[in-house]
Design a protein around this nucleic acid. Sequence first.
DNA 1: TGCATATTCAACCATATGGTTGAGCTTGCA
DNA 2: TGCAAGCTCAACCATATGGTTGAATATGCA
Lengths: 126, 126
Amino acid sequence: MCVALDRTPSGSYGIDMSTDLDIVFSALADPTRRAILSMLLEDDMAVTDVAEPFEMSLAAISKHLSILTRAGLIQQEKRGRVKWCKLQPDALRSASVWMQGFGQFEPVHLDAFERFLAAEFHDDQA
Amino acid sequence: MCVALDRTPSGSYGIDMSTDLDIVFSALADPTRRAILSMLLEDDMAVTDVAEPFEMSLAAISKHLSILTRAGLIQQEKRGRVKWCKLQPDALRSASVWMQGFGQFEPVHLDAFERFLAAEFHDDQA
DNA sequence: TGCATATTCAACCATATGGTTGAGCTTGCA
DNA sequence: TGCAAGCTCAACCATATGGTTGAATATGCA
């Protein structure tokens, strides 16, 4: 599903990482959806239980869950008549990588000791 | 920045950066804006130069730059009749911290990031 | 002074987004 | 068998978003 981190040499096929990021970031842009993700961090939940704390219709929550599913941020699995929602944190990785790339250019606040450690353990990190 | 009391349904999380996250994530959700950020990673640029590679009016780019500024992702400074745009990567920190809460991600390898960025930038130019 | 450059503003348009309601489908169970 | 529970669908609505164009506002310079 999520191919954002695909680094295979199939680049000419034009796997669209850009669209994945569109979908993931816009999924994260809504506070209700971020709250849902936080809730699912605790435990898997049924749709009805996800909806319970919100002052919003079940249908609206159902839509939010579809958006999160489409972004690959959660997985939904139906068991009996209950649809369970499970966090899929891996989908955040591509977005996280993208963002941290900008962090590389932040001024580095290493003091001499940390600089020493960084140099000392450089091989371990490679 | 906005600091208010948290009101997420899932409980108390102390300081609420919810609206900040809304603004930052939705700023990042647009491929044109991400491409602009990538360009500014190279160097500071004037508005006209930012607009140059895009097949879109200058006014549209100007709007995108306002959105990035409002999100704190860039800073704009007018010198003479030229308005310079400068990356402000610190603004990504709160969003990054939020996302880190969802899982341990691999340490970022810069070369992987640059390939990722190059691919995405290529998509946007196409 | 007067014109070109750099950028934003204002009005407008099409589409996307986030919500509602009511009906409909599937499943569990008394 | 029949009803309640769990969830989605479809239609609708208001507002947000991302783009356009033409006019307006600064600023630099010959």
